[in-house]
Design a protein around this nucleic acid. Structure first.
Lengths: 243, 243
DNA sequence: TGACTAAATTGATCCCGGTCAACGTCAGTC
DNA sequence: GACTGACGTTGACCGGGATCAATTTAGTCA
């Protein structure tokens, strides 16, 4: 599909000291653990790096691996029989991939413009969960947070106009960037307009038109294609008027 | 809002013997527990009954309670500032209400045409989870299942045409009924056309037209307003052609 | 049973956003 | 610097589904 996915995933094991300096540690599963517990986790972890467009796995693959994202962005998507694609979500540093009860992945995961992840065997994590209830507790917290995101996504898809969807999307990216300690305002968009469209249930032309319109109305300034500055967050929030 | 919500919720405590004969037991949180553990759970449970349209709680209420549904159907919905409503989901016997990390409920929960639930204090469940890791494990399983449902909902909202949405909806209700041990084929619809519309992101007139169209095409037979018989499941599945 | 109201159906019209097409822009490569 | 192909923007047109409106059906209660 994506011809620019030329890089091969690099993979290597690492020790607990690496975890201690991991910038995503407090955001993801590992944040719940003490140093000695962390060494248990690090023993079953593998660090991997993916190039732009490269797939971590494909829809339908046997689901025997889960991931913590430590850097970059990952796109989760499902494809229908006729080729239409729904982007389920964009995941960033601190996010977890793998909440599924099925034997095969129900989605494809691809690095948007490069990503680094910690990879775990599903069975290893299940075993660790039985040994350390903290791990399962933390996973439940993260699953709960995923449910909240999915429900916001549902409301946006079901009730939003095109402009509302794009506004909500920009505010969401801004909020997420802040949550992981990044800059909230010049919003960085690693994904293409088509990715955004497939996330929002729109045509990519419509996304493009909405960006232009929001800029003309003075709500945003499009610095470059991948950088948008929010000029009037209030008005933008009014567009995406979820209670 | 709903003037027919005249019944007042009945509430009473009960002992573990009641749990043993609960038809929803193996579907929900309690299924993971042995008899002695079940008695712990039953001590913190309250059984409640809600009439048609009656609210378990409203969006914004302090979220200090969670629920297991034991009978009937519950509608979860969020309302936007301007009054538009998104139905997040329909929950049935065996389903859990309360996966949220926020201090206040992000949705309103209402009995569709009457429902029975087991009610638990959020703190009590958290405490029980620390004592019995099985409980947290089971909650994680249920949360994972909720994520899968939400993601299917997202794909349907983002990529489906009106007819596809309605077809998927009927098949989903049928599947869910079978999962909880009910009849799969004459599908029972406790909710109104407007409820369905707000779930699917459509106008209720469009939902009505789709029903008529599916009937004219011979895919379904509308017995009464609330009972639809699936005549051609294959063709119906082709409409909702998710891979 | 009839009166009343909510829910559902059906028709007519309109508009938002999809589709198709042309063009512009940028990054990488030779 | 010219070529190339992916990505993005803009315009023209069209159709699916929203909206408004009228009518029918179902459900509830006196």
């Amino acid at each position: 599909m994506n011809k620019s996915a030329m890089t091969t995933a690099a993979s290597f094991a690492f020790d607990a000291s690496r975890c201690l300096i991991c910038s995503a540690r407090n955001l993801n599963m590992c944040g719940a653990l003490e140093q000695d517990e962390l060494s248990k986790l690090s023993k079953i972890a593998r660090c991997e790096s993916f190039g732009s467009g490269e797939a971590l796995f494909h829809e339908g693959d046997t689901a025997n691996t889960v991931y913590n994202i430590t850097d970059g962005a990952v796109r989760l998507s499902s494809t229908l029989k006729d080729g239409r694609r729904q982007v389920i979500g964009f995941l960033f540093s601190g996010d977890f991939i793998g909440f599924s009860d099925r034997p095969n992945y129900p989605w494809t995961a691809e690095a948007v413009r490069g990503a680094k992840v910690c990879r775990f065997g599903r069975n290893d994590i299940a075993k660790l969960g039985r040994e350390l209830p903290k791990v399962e507790h933390r996973l439940l917290e993260m699953a709960t947070s995923d449910i909240a995101s999915a429900q916001e996504h549902i409301t946006m898809l079901g009730q939003g106009s095109a402009a509302e969807k794009v506004s909500s999307f920009l505010l969401m990216l801004s909020r997420k960037a802040a949550q992981r300690g990044g800059v909230a305002n010049p919003v960085h968009l690693p994904m293409t307009r088509e990715d955004i469209a497939d996330y929002l249930g729109l045509a990519f032309e419509t996304v493009s038109r909405c960006f232009t319109r929001l800029e003309n109305e003075g709500l945003i300034a499009i610095g470059s294609i991948r950088v948008v500055r929010i000029k009037d967050a209030e008005a933008l929030a009014d567009y995406s008027e979820n209670e």
